[in-house]
């Protein structure tokens, strides 16, 4: 049964005008904000719809950090339980629901990565992937994705235009939770160079998102 709450709550999310670029729900279903309100009212159906809408994105994020399907499934379940429990702490004035969920999922995934005994093996795999597929972060878009939202494709385009060293620095910081000093050691690059790469890369992505938001 589709979730039917129809409140005019979107305006609350506009107070700060975050640069968020969430695709619109396909088929005109309830907005993310309406589903978050449902979670806050302890409506399990709202969680079910959020899972259907974003489990793929969150799992991809977890997989990017952990590189293990089983662990990713387990953590995905834990993360949605935490979303359910923590929904009351979500504030539309501080950002969009997807941003909040991604922040939560990333933190949990990086925590899990740091606890893993096999951390070094994951690092090796990441390094191999980076060396063998420097463009791995950016994928060709399928028709299904385009239907889901051109936004996703546009975001990838913004990131794909970064020079590979900047992509790598941003990737290590975001998906592996490394500090600038750790990235410098990991890539055997001077710290000042890493700082510059990260600053430039993040600024380009941020500016690209602002342009996207203006276009949408």
């Amino acid at each position: 049964m589709p979730y039917k709450v129809r409140q005019t709550v979107e305006a609350e999310g506009e107070a700060m005008q975050p640069v968020a670029v969430t695709p619109a729900p396909p088929g005109g279903g309830p907005s993310d904000l309406e589903l978050m309100r449902g979670l806050q009212a302890e409506d399990a159906e709202a969680l079910s719809q959020l899972y259907d809408r974003y489990s793929g994105i969150l799992k991809a994020l977890i997989l990017r950090v952990l590189h293990n399907e089983t662990e990713a499934d387990d953590l995905l379940q834990e993360i949605f339980m935490e979303i359910w429990r923590q929904a009351k702490n979500f504030s539309a004035q501080k950002g969009k629901p997807l941003g909040w969920m991604v922040t939560l999922a990333r933190r949990r995934a990086i925590d899990a990565l740091r606890k893993k005994q096999a951390y070094s093996r994951a690092e090796e795999r990441l390094q191999m992937e980076t060396e063998q597929q420097p463009e791995a972060w950016v994928h060709n878009s399928t028709q299904e994705e385009i239907v889901l939202g051109d936004t996703r494709v546009l975001v990838r385009d913004v990131i794909s235009r970064l020079p590979p060293p900047q992509q790598q620095a941003v990737e290590l910081a975001f998906f592996q939770g490394m500090s600038q000093r750790e990235i410098a050691a990991h890539t055997n690059t001077p710290l000042g160079t890493v700082k510059t790469r990260l600053e430039l890369g993040l600024k380009k992505i941020y500016d690209g998102l602002k342009e996207l938001k203006d276009e949408l």
Partner: peptide, 22 residues
């Protein structure tokens, strides 16, 4: 306010990935 806006980067990085089968 600016820090709040920067958290949109998280959303963007997640959207840049190919969704996985859950």
């Amino acid at each position: 306010d600016y820090i709040g806006e920067c958290y949109a980067l998280h959303e963007a990085f997640a959207l840049s990935l190919q969704p996985a089968k859950a």
